[in-house]
């Protein structure tokens, strides 16, 4: 147990260091983009005078390293600053969208993970059967088509043809949970379609991989039935790779859904980040990327810990 605590502490420290590097990289990347916030915001309306005034107002006349370190010291104290474009606190801008993004990701995960695991296990159990093939082909076709295609087909069938579900997924603060679940059903299904295959195939492969090991053969010879064989003997040992691929997909559900946000007009973090990058709105870009980086690092940490708990051998790499 103490080993696990030490490992977690180590990982968190490493995670913080990674975050620091991420902020620096993001800052440099946005600096390298042609044009700054002032050029982007004034667009066709720019004149020399208004450019200079706006630069001075925002502090863009300072050298880059000064801006980075002043941002960093403020952020370390929990002050994410104000958006360049509308002078709103970044925390306000991000707050609601962060909730939206996590809500949709959680909803999609609640659908995708059980479906993927169940079908993965069943496919392993009945491997090479017609069932296995149908499941595989369906999942692979779903992941091979772009998200917006799946989204448009779902909208076409369920919103336009049948009229059961709305094509705009707009939830407000006062939308009830039940109503939100209904509004977000199509986006969640879209995300499920594009994430299931990866998790399902990994589950299937991990289990099949174990099926040839001697201890499974032993269990078979002992007379264990197929259901118990997989759930009790094979699955616990296959959990480690499965947990890792699930974590990766959960991270994708948080950081990679901007296309789905656009098609369903859902106010999530992805759209905010795209807008902010195109406007070079540095404080918002930094904060958004921090959220994404924390998500990635956090989910990986959880996956590692779960892997170790299910497979203590990983604690002592020889």
């Amino acid at each position: 147990m103490i080993q696990i605590v030490r490992l977690v502490a180590q990982r968190i420290a490493l995670g913080l260091f990674t975050l620091l590097i991420v902020t620096l990289l993001i800052f440099l990347a946005v600096e390298l983009l042609p044009g700054d916030f002032v050029d982007a915001i004034l667009r066709q309306g720019r004149t020399q005078e208004s450019v200079e005034v706006l630069r001075r107002q925002i502090g863009l006349d300072q050298p880059a390293y000064v801006r980075y370190f002043s941002w960093l010291t403020n952020a370390a104290q929990g002050d994410l600053g104000y958006s360049f474009s509308n002078e709103r606190p970044v925390s306000d801008l991000i707050g609601n969208r962060l909730y939206n993004t996590f809500f949709l990701a959680g909803y999609a995960a609640a659908m995708a993970v059980p479906v993927a695991l169940t079908f993965g296990i069943l496919a392993a159990l009945y491997r090479n059967s017609v069932f296995d093939r149908v499941v595989n082909i369906t999942a692979l076709s779903a992941i091979s088509s772009p998200e917006f295609l799946a989204a448009y087909i779902l909208i076409f069938v369920f919103s336009i043809q049948l009229g059961w579900l709305p094509s705009l997924a707009h939830i407000a603060i006062d939308t009830s949970l039940w109503e939100s679940l209904k509004l977000l059903f199509l986006p969640a299904v879209t995300l499920t379609l594009v994430t299931v295959a990866h998790m399902m195939r990994m589950t299937r492969a991990a289990i099949i991989n174990l099926m040839t090991s001697p201890y499974i053969e032993m269990a078979l010879l002992k007379g264990v039935g197929p259901k118990r064989l997989i759930l009790r003997h094979a699955l616990p040992n296959a959990l480690s790779p499965i947990v890792n691929v699930v974590a990766m997909n959960l991270a994708y559900l948080v950081v990679g859904v901007v296309v789905v946000e656009v098609v369903f007009v859902y106010p999530g973090l992805g759209q905010l980040l795209v807008d902010s990058v195109s406007k070079r709105d540095m404080p918002v870009v930094q904060a958004g990327c921090l959220v994404f980086a924390v998500t990635y690092i956090g989910l990986n940490l959880v996956a590692d810990i779960l892997s170790i708990i299910t497979n203590p051998r990983l604690l002592n790499p020889s």
Binding site: Y152, I155, S159, I160, G163, P166, S167, L168, H170, V262, V263, F264, V265
Partner: peptide
């Protein structure tokens, strides 16, 4: 007044009576 940047989404919203 909503922002619906995707023109397909905008048309769908009108078609389905959402706007």
């Amino acid at each position: 007044i909503r922002v619906i940047a995707d023109h397909t989404a905008r048309t769908n919203a009108l078609m389905t009576g959402a706007v």
